[in-house]
Design a protein around this nucleic acid. Structure first.
Length: 203
DNA sequence: TGAGCCGTCCAAATGCGCAC
DNA sequence: GTGCGCATTTGGACGGCTCA
């Protein structure tokens, strides 16, 4: 951690692998960090005069550190992704977090720590599993007593009453954000018609 | 009861794909 | 080329809750 403008910074973004190469950032380098906006810390440049002799170049991992699946980077894309899909616990966690987020299904109380536990204990594998959760399973978890468990179950129940647009957005399909989800919902009108359109496309 | 934990929200910047 | 939408990044404030 370092102090930048009176704020402790523990991590700073470098955007992607290409950016690391463009700025020639190596492991062990001293760097200049600036705050973009209120809080976002950004690595601006390297201080070459402070580079340790043993500084090594960054090498992107070939396999996912969580599930061991191959790391794939499509041609013309900047991002490298784990190819494990929902088999990968890290991807499962993020899918659940996105599903529950306020702008998606808005399940209050389902945050990072709780999702972490649900995935770790294999209680929840897909978002659909959330709707099969019971009080007994929840109160086994850390920092989850009856009050919290009850509140969470209520929030999950409430989320059943949602809009088609929110549901589509909650699925976490790449390149389908809120605006696209709204467009799809407006165009198809119902989930059945959307699914039917999908099947018609496959035939 | 109070300390500490947890979840949520927000800010600005940037990369990228795509439509026009 | 421009504009839009999506995704992602981090720290701090705040309210609700758990637990010793």
């Amino acid at each position: 951690s370092v102090l930048v403008g009176g704020v402790t910074v523990t991590n700073a973004t470098l955007h992607n692998e290409d950016e690391i190469r463009r700025k020639d950032v190596r492991v062990g380098d001293a760097v200049v960090v600036r705050r973009a906006g209120d809080v976002i810390p950004e690595v601006v440049r390297v201080l070459p005069e402070k580079r340790p002799p043993a500084a090594s170049a960054f090498v992107m991992a070939a396999t996912c550190p969580v599930c061991g699946s191959q790391v794939v980077r499509q041609q013309d894309e900047a991002v490298a992704r784990c190819s494990g899909g929902l088999y990968c616990p890290a991807q499962r966690r993020q899918a659940l977090l996105h599903f529950a987020s306020r702008r998606a299904m808005d399940i209050e109380g389902l945050g990072e720590r709780l999702v972490e536990q649900l995935v770790e204990h294999d209680v929840v594998r897909t978002p659909a599993d959330l709707y099969r959760l019971g009080l007994l399973a929840l109160v086994q978890l850390e920092r989850m007593a009856e009050k919290s468990a009850g509140n969470l179950l209520l929030a999950i129940e409430r989320s059943r009453q949602t809009t088609l647009a929110r549901f589509i957005y909650a699925l976490g399909i790449r390149n389908v954000g809120e605006a696209t989800a709204r467009d799809l919902a407006r165009h198809f009108g119902s989930l059945d018609r959307l699914l039917a359109a999908d099947e018609a496309q496959l035939l």
